[in-house]
């Protein structure tokens, strides 16, 4: 460990952190409006990453070689498909249990998570798959920092998507409906908001963002594995909690914080302990500041 590494680690942390923030959006939006930890989010992120591999290879077969265009197509298509899958998840695992005891939807979302992960494992034979190299340009060097153009690209795309989502929630009619449901679902329904549809849409948007995160992850690291959703999902959830669950800008803040903290951890501890550090952050935050950095106190609803 040397202090000279510090700037580089911060940059690395910010890059992965922006990805985690993107996945965290799904947790935070769904939790914000229906108070459910949607475990399936981790699996949707993984499914999105695998769909990305398929899309890239289809594009390559079709002769499309422009890498940036390929990335855009991959993100759009993977997000659309995963968003549709998230709709199915909502329809099957959440909607029928709206009035069940709170443990029931938590268990079904966990079961869905496991089911999707197992399906990916069966379909791919548990083999890691490779992403094509999108920008094969030599890394930029700025004093002590090296930054791969790909990494810069994914951070920019992730942040643009998050800002877009924030504007969507704050500025559009549907976004306003989401915020209304978050405050009081029954009152929102009485005001003529189709709450069922808005809730479903929230799941879909969360799934779409997770898929985008999955594709960007694949592009950044070059490989995707059948259990990436497990740890990735948990880090993203930590990000959501750290930023204040239910809070859209909080997802970005939390993601960047988790990214930088775990990147620092690799300076002090051997790499294998990085997961434990994230788990530790999660436990400490939940125990001592469950409202997160930006969140307000979440009162237990009587």
């Amino acid at each position: 460990m040397s202090l000279a590494e510090l700037p580089q680690q911060i940059v690395n942390g910010l890059v992965v952190g922006s990805l985690y923030g993107l996945i965290a959006l799904g947790y935070t939006m769904v939790y914000g409006i229906v108070r459910l930890i949607n475990f399936a989010q981790g699996a949707l992120y993984e499914v999105g990453a695998y769909l990305g591999v398929v899309i890239f290879s289809v594009l390559a077969d079709a002769g499309l070689r422009n890498p940036v265009l390929g990335l855009v197509v991959a993100i759009v298509v993977a997000s659309a498909l995963t968003g549709a899958l998230a709709l199915v998840v909502e329809r099957v695992a959440y909607r029928p249990l709206r009035h069940a005891p709170p443990l029931a939807p938590l268990v079904t979302s966990l079961a869905t998570f496991f089911l999707l992960m197992s399906i990916v494992q069966v379909v791919t034979g548990a083999q890691p798959l490779n992403y094509p190299q999108v920008l094969a340009v030599t890394p930029w060097t700025l004093g002590p920092i090296t930054l791969a153009p790909t990494a810069a690209l994914i951070a920019v795309v992730a942040i643009v998507l998050m800002v877009a989502m924030h504007l969507f929630v704050q500025r559009t009619r549907t976004g306003k409906a989401m915020r209304a449901i978050a405050v009081n679902r029954d009152a929102a329904a009485l005001m003529g908001i189709n709450t069922t549809r808005v809730v479903a849409l929230t799941f879909a948007l969360g799934g779409a963002m997770a898929a985008a995160g999955g594709v960007l992850f694949g592009v950044n690291y070059g490989t995707v594995t059948y259990n990436m959703g497990e740890f990735g999902g948990l880090v993203a959830f930590t990000a959501a909690v750290l930023g204040g669950i239910g809070n859209v800008p909080g997802a970005l803040v939390g993601g960047l914080t988790v990214g930088v903290l775990s990147s620092f951890a690799t300076m002090v501890l051997p790499n294998q302990w990085q997961e434990a550090v994230v788990f530790g952050i999660l436990i400490v935050v939940l125990a001592f500041r469950p409202q997160g950095i930006l969140g307000e106190r979440v009162a237990e609803r009587a």
Binding site: R35, L36, I37, P102, L103, L106, L234, F237, V241, P270, Q272, W273, E275, A276, F279, G280, L282, I283, L286, A287, P290, V298, E300
Partner: peptide
């Protein structure tokens, strides 16, 4: 951990299980 809300408890225990697993590996 047992002071926190039910769904947060689920996540915290998940984290605890994860820490024990990482510890077992390392």
């Amino acid at each position: 951990t047992l002071r926190v809300r039910g769904d947060y408890l689920a996540i915290m225990t998940l984290g605890f299980g994860g820490i024990v697993y990482v510890a077992a590996k390392n």
